[in-house]
Design a protein around this nucleic acid. Sequence first.
DNA 1: CTGAATCCTCGAGGATACTG
DNA 2: CAGTATCCTCGAGGATTCAG
Lengths: 124, 124
Amino acid sequence: MDMPASSGVSAQCRKIGKVLAIVGDKWTVMIVRVLVQRPHRFNELKRTIGGISQQMLTRTLKALERDGMVNRTVHPTVPPQVEYALTSLGQSLAVPVHALGVWAGEHLAEIEQNRARYDDDRNV
Amino acid sequence: MDMPASSGVSAQCRKIGKVLAIVGDKWTVMIVRVLVQRPHRFNELKRTIGGISQQMLTRTLKALERDGMVNRTVHPTVPPQVEYALTSLGQSLAVPVHALGVWAGEHLAEIEQNRARYDDDRNV
DNA sequence: CTGAATCCTCGAGGATACTG
DNA sequence: CAGTATCCTCGAGGATTCAG
């Protein structure tokens, strides 16, 4: 918000930057990828993901809800049941994210080889 | 590296996580998107991107070089000229990243509307 | 069970000065 | 011009406790 963004390149980069601000954090993608299969309840989500604190799960879900990516449905039972499901917007995001996942599967090994080689060349 | 990753979901998520660790930082995507057009020199890159410190540019470029995403070519002239160019690996990454950019262009406005509405509903 | 509130750590990212 | 080195800030993320 501080640059003139004179060229179209910058403008497009800002947009990507904003999306990465959503998607680039540690947990958003994992949550989306779990929810894209079927709706989940809070602790179910927590167990499925594994390694996330309830704090961060709450925060990330709230952020996703604010962005209109997930719907939060409270069933007024006892004990309370809260179900999280992807909206159509959230599902549409899952598409390019999945593309990234495919790319990861295809090239991650190569990247790690590159790293190892790079580190070798420097350490010997 | 601490979870059994019993299901394939987790395994795939780890991979995406690693890619996001590369792509998810503040500058990598912008650099890739600039370099995908044509190779750039250091300060040229710095000016084109705008708002990045030389420190972070150096760090990010070095990380990208380590991952085999960019080639660093030193022309032994005076003053020194260093040219950075995407490798084929880097160019292949630009594809899903661009897909994310397209998604951003299509849905960012909607997201920001969702946010505004969400915040309104809470503040009134 | 689903959160909200609090406290703490750690590293990404920035600013600045110096070097070859 | 193209870095390297140093210091600093700030917030993401985790751990724990309390509440409805």
